[in-house]
Design a protein around this nucleic acid. Sequence first.
DNA 1: TAGATTGTTAATCGATTAACAATC
DNA 2: TAGATTGTTAATCGATTAACAATC
Lengths: 205, 205
Amino acid sequence: MIKKNIQRIIQYRMCLLKFQNLGFEKIFSYTLAQEIGVSPEQVRKDFSQFHLRGNKKAGYLIQDILDQINDLLHKEDIHKIIMVGLGNIGQALIKYKGFANRNMQLVAGFDIDPAKLKKTCRIPTFHSKEIPAVVKKENVRLGIIAVPEAAAQEACNTLIEAGIKGILNFAPVMLKTPPDVVVQNISVCGELEALVYVTEKDKQK
Amino acid sequence: MIKKNIQRIIQYRMCLLKFQNLGFEKIFSYTLAQEIGVSPEQVRKDFSQFHLRGNKKAGYLIQDILDQINDLLHKEDIHKIIMVGLGNIGQALIKYKGFANRNMQLVAGFDIDPAKLKKTCRIPTFHSKEIPAVVKKENVRLGIIAVPEAAAQEACNTLIEAGIKGILNFAPVMLKTPPDVVVQNISVCGELEALVYVTEKDKQK
DNA sequence: TAGATTGTTAATCGATTAACAATC
DNA sequence: TAGATTGTTAATCGATTAACAATC
């Protein structure tokens, strides 16, 4: 499980960029806190844990904090990602233009279905058997799994075998991986089910 | 923040269905735990908190536990959902066929761009100004926001105004909502950035 | 019965919040 | 200086893990 403090650091970064674009140079823990819905103490605690320092009375220098967070998140590099599965989700993410300005790049897509490979696509697409070759050639460390549930573990095994170290998994299964490969799961249905639970519970009150 | 135990209950459910389909009638906390990557104590604790009871020595009756979880998650109803934003993500989720067998149904899509409304679609689509009318007519409680960042808060306000109680938000902003409206955020880029952080940290060891 | 498993209570761990000294 | 803000230490809270009695 990925620590919550780093997840918040990622949010702080987006927020700092937003304020910088609005022309601000400094920001207080209070402002940042309000923006992402936590307490100012939480912000200062998080910053403290990552050695992000401000100035007493004068708050934080946005550019300074951004530089340091960018270091933490390795924003000096462009992080290559491959997409396994060219169905609805896979195609949608390939079309998504938001990766570039966060230093992420989808470099290739894969599927076992030749029909899926024929669709015109912004990035090169290959049969899944080419995964190891492309991963090695492009030196990719991250992969997204957007294949049907039944094919997910096999896709995962191929990625691990190819040397992928981080996997974002859209399939509704817990993938089995060695300890040096990290998986993050996204389940749209699961999130909706959780929303049903909490909203129906609220209703009863 | 939605409690972790209910998120796991949702996972247990999927897992129980899987074992039921494989022909099993009973399951042990140990098996379930292994399948979703937690400890057997965690499973028993979660079950205990939701009053899901098993049999000493004989484990849990899958059908029995499923019935009770289905009650908890209100699986007796079909939960209607509207989609705001018919871009890449919106269109992909509308095409996704996995909602139906989890008792979810996307009933309508909305966008402010007439061009997006013209695309053929499995569900009815309307201009966003129709949101209140459709929500009232269909009695919808859940909405998905898949619009660009700049339009997200306005879309959110419209949903709140229309009476939506739970929002799944794909836009990279913290939405401001009253306490009776719950938001779950999904950030593909954010998850990938977190993966970069943990995998690069591992590399240094 | 003996062994295995549940279910609950107690202990531990980690994360958040509160308090407050430092200082600009 | 007085007031406001940071940064750290201590306290609290919640979630996980451990221990173990109950019992099938």
